[in-house]
């Protein structure tokens, strides 16, 4: 991704097609200084949005990939006891062993707080962690400060980061959590929007290929019994695969000859259903 057009309001980025509604929501969230919680089908660009905001506002992006076993303190800071022990035994580093602060490393949220400029903080897939983690984290983000108990010091944010949180969960997060976020659900793009998105990624795609792939793609999303429908990400990877194949001609799609189904359907039962359904598909 290229770094260009710095501005204060978010208006889209080079590889991200933004609908007007979402742009407004991003701008409002930045203005009222609230984290923005994004939900939507996997592959509809929730994570990409944070990248796009960072790119278009020319800010640094800090990504916190939430894991199920994660503890809140890890995201704030880490007290590197092992290095300290090592230093105390061998003493060949420039760090001062008696100064614990030298052994505090900032976690992702910590980094976004101590940064010297405003950053975009992406908290990806919050639903993986348990509810307590989520609530506690929002407390920290709400107050914009946390304590490092080992050195009894309070870290508060120099600049309030722009916070984007994504969730894949079909069920809602807890009420206190939701109360502290703005919310948006990214709906699956309409075919027209999808064409625009594809064109952004493949500027010199032929009209034939674009029409046929998008049409076939939406048809395939309708297959009965599919558990994980292919999303934007899959479509883009699929077109990339088709482009790479020199034997492929767009006309083949009309004859229901669909190569690289595996790019679109990643679960094996889905793949089998798709294989069976494709032969009956007519564009």
């Amino acid at each position: 991704m290229s770094q260009n057009n710095p501005s204060t309001a978010f208006a889209g980025a080079s590889k991200y097609v933004l609908d007007e509604e979402l742009a407004k929501i991003v701008n409002i969230s930045m203005a009222v200084e609230m984290p923005l919680l994004l939900k939507g089908e996997p592959g509809t660009g929730k994570t990409m949005l944070a990248h796009a905001i960072a790119e278009s506002l020319n800010m640094r992006l800090i990504v916190l990939n939430v894991k199920s076993s994660m503890k809140l303190v890890e995201t704030l800071y880490q007290y590197d006891t092992l290095t300290r022990l090592n230093d105390s035994r061998f003493g060949d580093s420039s760090r001062d062993v008696s100064n614990i602060e030298d052994y505090i490393k900032m976690g992702k949220i910590g980094q976004s707080f101590v940064s010297d400029e405003r950053v975009v903080l992406l908290i990806d897939e919050i639903d993986k962690a348990d509810t307590d983690f989520q609530d506690d984290m929002l407390d920290v983000l709400d107050q914009m400060e946390f304590d490092i108990i080992e050195i009894d010091k309070t870290i508060s944010a120099k600049y309030r980061p722009v916070i984007v949180i994504t969730s894949n969960a079909k069920k809602d997060l807890s009420d206190p959590f939701l109360g502290r976020c703005n919310f948006h659900h990214i709906a699956f793009p309409e075919p027209d929007m999808m064409r625009t998105i594809v064109r952004v990624h493949f500027p010199d795609i032929s009209k034939d290929l674009l029409d046929h792939t998008v049409k076939a793609f939406y048809r395939m999303r309708e297959f009965r019994g599919i558990e994980k429908k292919p999303a934007t990400r899959e479509l883009i990877n699929w077109i990339r695969a088709l482009n790479a194949d020199s034997d492929f001609r767009a006309k083949d799609l009309v004859k229901a000859d669909i190569p690289y189904l595996g790019v679109l359907f990643k679960k094996s039962p889905d793949y089998i259903i798709a294989q069976n359904s494709v032969s009956r598909m007519r564009l």
């Binding site: 407004k24 409002i28 609230m34 976020c181």
Partner: peptide, 30 residues
């Protein structure tokens, strides 16, 4: 919070209001 957003002059049309109020007030796509 919505009042605050209104207060800082971000919302200038009913379209803005529709989007902003939804993002701020409604917390689930359901």
């Amino acid at each position: 919070r919505l009042q605050k957003a209104l207060g800082i002059g971000l919302i200038t049309s009913i379209d803005d209001f529709y989007t902003a109020a939804r993002a701020i007030l409604v917390k689930s796509e359901r």
